[in-house]
């Protein structure tokens, strides 16, 4: 009988979420976790509103989605007008530059020519 089968895998190989204990662990952990998630969500709602609008545009029309379509598009337009989408656009532009870099004449999007 192996360790894994007797006691489960966690006893044998551990888990990446098990961190050595610290007194801070027990300090309002649920409130801490929820605040982290809420702040990150709000941040993305403000600075990545374009992604929300793009995702919403791909949803099939339904009585539940249609009333939300205009407010979401308006929110994305407002954040864009205020320049809040600029950080994402700047990172995207740099990433596209990196994608466009070449050693020579390689063309990953086209058929090869070895034949």
């Amino acid at each position: 009988m192996t360790t894994g089968a007797e006691q489960g895998e966690i006893a044998e190989v551990g888990s990446p979420v098990l961190v050595p204990a610290d007194p801070v662990d027990g300090v309002a952990p649920w409130r801490w976790m929820t605040t982290v998630i809420a702040v990150a969500t709000l941040f993305l709602g403000v600075f990545n509103a374009h992604a929300i609008a793009a995702w919403f545009d791909e949803l099939p029309p339904s009585p539940y989605t249609e009333p939300l379509r205009a407010p979401i598009a308006a929110w994305a337009a407002t954040t864009a007008r205020l320049g809040l989408d600029a950080p994402r656009a700047a990172v995207r532009a740099r990433w596209e530059q990196a994608q466009a870099m070449r050693f020579g004449s390689e063309q990953p999007g086209e058929d090869g020519s070895a034949r």
Binding site: T35, V39, A40, F43, L44, P87, A89
Partner: peptide, 18 residues
């Protein structure tokens, strides 16, 4: 928590842009 939440948001935004 707000500091970690903001950091998390920034890093997710960077990943999303790429």
């Amino acid at each position: 928590a707000p500091v970690i939440g903001l950091s998390l948001g920034v890093l997710i935004l960077i990943v999303d842009a790429m």
